Amino acid sequence: MSAEVVPLPRKEPSLAPILSLTATAMNAVNTVILDRMQSEIPLIPALAGHLISGGGKRMRPMLTLAGADLVGYQGTRHHKLAAAVEFIHTATLLHDDVVDGSETRRGKEAANLVFGNPATVLVGDFLFSRAFELMVEDGSLKVLKILAGASSIIAQGEVDQLVSQRVIETSEDRYLHIIGAKTAVLFAAASRIAAVVAERDEAEERALDDYGRNLGIAFQLVDDAIDYDSDAAEMGKDRGDDFREGKMTLPVILAYARGNDEERRFWQEAIAGFRNEDEDLAHAIELIRKHDSVNATRERARHFAERAVDALSIFPDGKARAAMTEAARFAVSRGY
């Protein structure tokens, strides 16, 4: 009589390996962040600290640190540059919350509600300035070009998203172009600069850029899926924010494309801003579930995550590559 084989439970991807890999270096980065967000004007560190101390995955600076480990960099230049990356990201979040009129961020009241829109915008500008100070201190024109270029593209992506808001005809290609600019470009830059400071060749720079860019697209796709697939407590923001703001994210684009005439009329009215009550959101979620739009969005995210993993194939196996691989797969499986 043969013994019954009990399959082992499937292990979900986790950020634990990359968190462990970068823990010591992240402490150094956090020290830089805390030091450089200080000012003789008390409102600046108070407002910046409201968001920075609110948590967040710190994915972008982690990519700089993990990438440095992957290419065998032994110095400390990447600490300041990872802090610069986080300042750029934080500045964009502060500006986004003003533009979107957000009420929560990372599970707490958004800075614009606590401190007001003018102060939030100006402190975002301060953090951008601090980021560029850190880049200049590093002294590499190549690093400066990469991060400055990324900052410019992010701003253009945000404007592109703004002009696409409430435009029901937004295509999937246009949407992917927007998230490639507003999200993925900083993931790419954060990853690439690790190879630059380590003075690695163009192929390794390009591989890290590809890894970060594809991971960033996957990350944003999942963020947009979560808006219709998770509760506010888990997400750290209000469920349905994208719906009420008339953003044409992929779950909506797919549901609209797959819908019948009646469903399309609903989406046209909703995206135009005429159907934004709680019952309208509930109906939107019902339609998105009917057409399996969330799963389809996550499936596309898996495609980009695997492209990110494939980009690492030129590097030798080891803890850093394994951690970055698992981080890419976590980005797709996460529920927050």
Rank of each mutant, 00 (worst) to 15 (best):
G139Q: 09
G139M: 12
G139H: 03
S140N: 14
S140W: 12
S140Y: 05
L141T: 07
L141E: 07
L141M: 13
L141C: 05
K142V: 06
K142A: 10
K142C: 05
K142I: 08
K142N: 06
K142P: 03
K142H: 06
K142Q: 10
V143M: 01
V143W: 08
V143H: 02
V143D: 02
L144G: 03
L144D: 04
L144T: 01
L144C: 00
L144A: 05
L144M: 06
K145A: 11
K145M: 11
K145P: 05
K145Q: 13
K145S: 09
K145D: 09
K145T: 00
I146G: 01
I146E: 00
I146A: 07
I146C: 02
I146Y: 05
L147H: 07
L147E: 06
L147T: 02
L147P: 00
A148P: 11
A148R: 06
A148C: 10
A148M: 07
A148W: 03
A148F: 09
A148D: 12
G149E: 14
G149C: 09
G149Q: 07
G149A: 14
G149K: 11
A150W: 02
A150R: 00
A150L: 04
A150F: 02
A150K: 01
S151M: 10
S151E: 09
S152G: 15
S152N: 13
I153S: 06
I153N: 04
I153Y: 08
I154Y: 04
I154A: 03
I154K: 00
I154D: 07
I154L: 03
I154H: 01
I154G: 05
A155L: 12
A155I: 00
A155K: 06
A155G: 09
A155T: 10
A155S: 11
A155M: 09
Q156K: 01
Q156L: 09
Q156A: 13
Q156F: 01
G157P: 00
G157R: 05
G157D: 03
G157A: 08
G157C: 11
G157H: 01
G157W: 01
E158W: 06
E158A: 12
E158Y: 09
E158C: 08
E158L: 12
E158K: 12
E158V: 07
V159Y: 09
V159D: 08
V159C: 10
D160M: 11
D160S: 10
D160T: 03
D160E: 15
D160C: 12
D160I: 02
Q161K: 13
Q161D: 10
Q161H: 15
Q161V: 01
Q161C: 13
Q161S: 12
Q161P: 12
Q161E: 14
L162Q: 15
L162R: 11
V163W: 12
V163P: 00
V163I: 15
V163S: 15
V163Y: 14
S164V: 05
S164G: 08
S164Q: 01
S164F: 04
S164C: 08
Q165V: 11
Q165L: 11
Q165E: 14
Q165D: 02
Q165H: 05
Q165S: 13
R166W: 08
R166F: 02
R166N: 04
R166H: 04
V167S: 01
V167W: 13
V167K: 13
V167C: 10
V167H: 13
I168H: 03
